[in-house]
Simulated assay, not measured.
Amino acid sequence: MKQLRLLLFPFSIVYGIVIWIRNRLFDLQIIKSKNYTIPTIVVGNLAVGGTGKSPMTEFIIQVLKDKYRVATLSRGYGRKTKGFKYVNIASTADEVGDEPLQFKNKFPNITVSVCEDRCIGVETLMNSHDVIVLDDAFQHRRLKPTFSILLFEYSSCLHPMFVLPMGNFRDLPAESKRANMLVVTKTPSDASDSEKELIKNKLIHKSAVTNVYFTSIVYGDLISINELEAKITPNTTVLLLTGIANPKPLIKYLKPLINDMEHLAFSDHHAFTRNDILTIRQRFEQIKNRSKIIITTEKDAQRIRTPEFLNILNDIPVAYIPIEIAFEDKSISKSVQQQLLSICERSVNES
Results as ranks from 00 to 15, higher is better:
I294N: 10
I294F: 09
N259Y: 05
I304P: 15
I225Y: 03
L25W: 15
K255L: 13
K252C: 12
K80H: 07
P160S: 08
L150K: 00
I61N: 10
P173Q: 02
L222N: 07
Q62D: 15
I19D: 11
E308C: 01
S291E: 15
L73I: 03
I343C: 00
P188G: 10
T236C: 01
S148T: 09
E95F: 06
N235P: 04
E350H: 04
P256K: 05
E123H: 04
D130Y: 01
K67Q: 11
E58C: 02
V87W: 12
T242A: 10
G76M: 08
E328I: 02
V209N: 05
E195L: 09
S335D: 13
A191K: 11
N259Q: 06
N314E: 13
L143Y: 04
E116R: 00
V218D: 13
N275M: 10
T40Q: 07
I244G: 13
E229K: 04
I30G: 15
L46A: 07
A301M: 08
E328A: 01
P317N: 09
S207V: 01
I110V: 03
I225D: 12
N168G: 12
I132N: 03
D117H: 02
A93R: 11
D260I: 01
L25P: 15
V48R: 01
S331Q: 08
D136P: 12
H159E: 13
D315C: 02
I89K: 12
S335Y: 05
S54H: 02
I280N: 06
Q3P: 14
V48C: 07
K32P: 15
T51E: 12
Q337Y: 01
Q139T: 07
S12N: 09
A191Q: 14
S91K: 07
H270R: 01
T279R: 07
S148F: 03
I244K: 06
V43P: 13
S156D: 10
P317R: 00
Y68W: 03
F84Q: 12
S194L: 15
K106I: 12
N109M: 04
T92H: 06
G16M: 02
K330C: 02
V336E: 04
S189G: 03
V96M: 04
I251E: 15
L203I: 07
P165L: 04
H159W: 06
I312F: 12
V318D: 11
P55D: 11
L310S: 09
Y86S: 08
I225E: 10
D190A: 05
R346S: 02
R5V: 09
E99K: 03
P317L: 04
A230N: 07
K292S: 14
V336S: 04
G97K: 03
A230E: 10
I223M: 10
K206T: 09
R281K: 11
C115R: 00
G167Y: 10
I287L: 12
T57D: 08
L198E: 15
E116I: 02
S12M: 07
T279P: 07
Q29P: 15
P160F: 04
F309R: 04
A93H: 12
L172K: 03
Q102A: 00
G50C: 01
T124K: 12
D300Q: 14
E328H: 00
L150V: 05
F84R: 05
E153T: 00
E197Q: 11
K202D: 07
S347W: 00
I132G: 08
P39C: 03
L198N: 13
Q139R: 01
G167L: 14
R79F: 03
F26C: 15
I61F: 09
D221F: 03
N105Q: 13
V87L: 11
